[in-house]
Design a protein around this nucleic acid. Structure first.
Length: 428
RNA sequence: GGGAGGUUGCCCGAGUGGUUAAAGGGGGCGGAUUGUAAAUCCGCUGACUAUGUCUACAUAGGUUCGAAUCCUAUACCUCCCA
């Protein structure tokens, strides 16, 4: 376990301190003994995606250094919607969706932090205290402490007004809620530190100002950089959408593969940002990457670390198993269950089992059924080009008919076009 | 209101009566190579019940043995003059 003095320097070499309101003050505070730090999570979906890992890891690092993390799920703030980083007004979530999202995110946060013992992490929902406020009370107690000048000066507000996209009163007032959360936590839990991504800076400093005005509190804010690639794009996006922490949305295999495919230019930064790999190993990985990038030692280490953290050792084992099969040889004599785990992210279609009987199902029709070809001409072409694989075996004859003997498991046929476009056909 | 030019496949763009399913490029898709990278090279890129048939060059008609190419009308776009 790192000590408090190590914590700030550890964060610094990892590049995790983007902005800090008063670094020497914060260092002093952390030196005085265990502190509490909070980070809010926006319940915009039932799951966090990889961007949220930065925040989860920050809490985790504080906990390992002997402090107490507080994960706040924004049941109340989510009803309004944080306009930070959004170029246009957001749609409001329904109350039912919101509740589902809050529950989903809470269960994910629990995997990252230790909730046992005196210093166990806390998981709270700001709806619990916000719901008790009446509008009038809120305006008198909180709104009175918000001068409108600085609010209008915020980048977010200015850019929205300049672009004529506009901003509703609701989103304009969002910052009051998050600012009040901080003050509330400072008063009831003695939590004097708020962390977050760099997009949260404005919200955090607003809370610090409010704390000073409402009770002479001295609060601290610390933001981490956003997780971006070397050319400035946000990480966590693939062609097929966001990479989620929820195994139902992004299978452990896909999650593992995402990290394995991180570019050389980004991999060391990801390791610094997202893992607890120590400096010694970090430097060794860096050397190995430079010496022989083809081995992708750093990517493998990153992928293994992330997958084990998020999906457990069983998830990592499943991801490895799937990788072996997909990049290995033929697919044969597997069970439906194994296949559906390996191909959890692969589109699948059901067809009637009768198609396999008699003469069998024409491969061209199978490709169309599976969505790999949009026309039979395209399917024939792909076969002629040697780009079609049945159970990972290349198909060379476009007159090929598929029968029950071709099934890779009880009911499933695995089709592939090119290197990695898989599709399943289930015969039921 | 008058005049000139334009509208081609997913996109850009050549083609001005006869192998034109339409040059070339981009994009996309495959293959080889590779590190599940980048770069490179090669192939494919309208549809179908497929060695043939059908549909396509803004839309609708017409001339012709034969039209993306010529004629007429319509729609849209660009420019110039008032």
């Amino acid at each position: 376990m790192t000590t408090t003095t190590d914590l700030i320097s550890d964060l610094r070499w990892r590049g995790l301190i983007h902005q800090c309101t008063d670094e020497s003050g914060l260092q002093k505070l952390l030196g005085e003994g265990p502190q509490r730090i909070y980070i809010g999570f926006d319940p915009t979906a039932t799951s966090l995606h990889v961007g949220g890992l930065m925040q989860l890891m920050m809490l985790r690092r504080f906990q390992r250094a002997g402090h107490q993390p507080i994960a706040l799920v924004g049941g109340a703030t989510g009803m309004i919607g944080d306009p930070s980083g959004k170029s246009e007004e957001r749609k409001l979530l329904s109350v039912e969706d919101l509740q589902r999202n809050v529950a989903g995110i809470a269960s994910q946060v629990e995997r990252f932090l230790d909730f046992d013992g005196d210093r166990g992490a806390l998981l709270i929902n700001n709806f619990d205290w916000m719901q008790k406020f009446s509008y009038l009370e809120f305006l008198r107690d909180v709104g009175k402490n918000f001068p409108i000048g600085p609010m209008l000066g915020r980048d977010l507000v200015r850019s929205r007004l300049e672009n004529e996209v506009g901003l509703s009163y609701t989103e304009f007032s969002y910052v009051l809620l998050q600012a009040y959360d901080f003050v509330h936590l400072a008063k009831t839990y003695g939590c004097r530190i708020q962390g977050g991504g760099s997009d949260q800076w404005g919200n955090i400093t607003a809370g610090i100002d409010l704390g000073r005005r409402m009770g002479g509190l001295q609060l601290f804010g610390l933001t981490a950089p956003l997780l971006t690639t070397s050319d400035g794009r946000k990480m966590g996006k693939t062609e097929s959408g966001a990479v989620w922490l929820d195994p139902e949305r992004t299978s452990p295999y896909a999650f593992y593969q995402y990290w394995l495919r991180v570019e050389d230019a980004d991999v060391m930064r990801c390791i610094a940002y997202l893992t607890e790999i120590d400096r010694e190993e970090y430097e060794s990985l860096q050397q190995q990457t430079q010496a022989d990038p083809g081995k992708r030692v750093a990517q493998k280490r990153l992928a293994a670390w992330m997958t084990e953290l998020v999906h457990g050792s069983a998830g990592l084992a499943a991801a490895n198993h799937a990788s072996e099969i997909l990049f290995g040889g033929e697919i044969d004599r597997l069970s439906d269950r194994q296949l559906s785990e390996i191909f959890a992210d692969v589109p699948s279609n059901e067809c009637s089992r009768e198609l396999l009987s008699g003469e069998g199902l024409w491969i061209v029709d199978a490709l169309r059924q599976a969505g790999l070809s949009s026309s039979s001409g395209e399917a024939r072409r792909a076969i002629n080009e040697g780009g079609i694989y049945l159970n990972n075996r290349r198909v060379s004859d476009f007159n090929r008919k598929l029968t029950a003997d071709d099934l890779a498991s009880e009911t499933v046929l695995v089709l592939r076009k090119g290197k990695r476009n898989y599709a399943l056909l289930r015969f039921v």
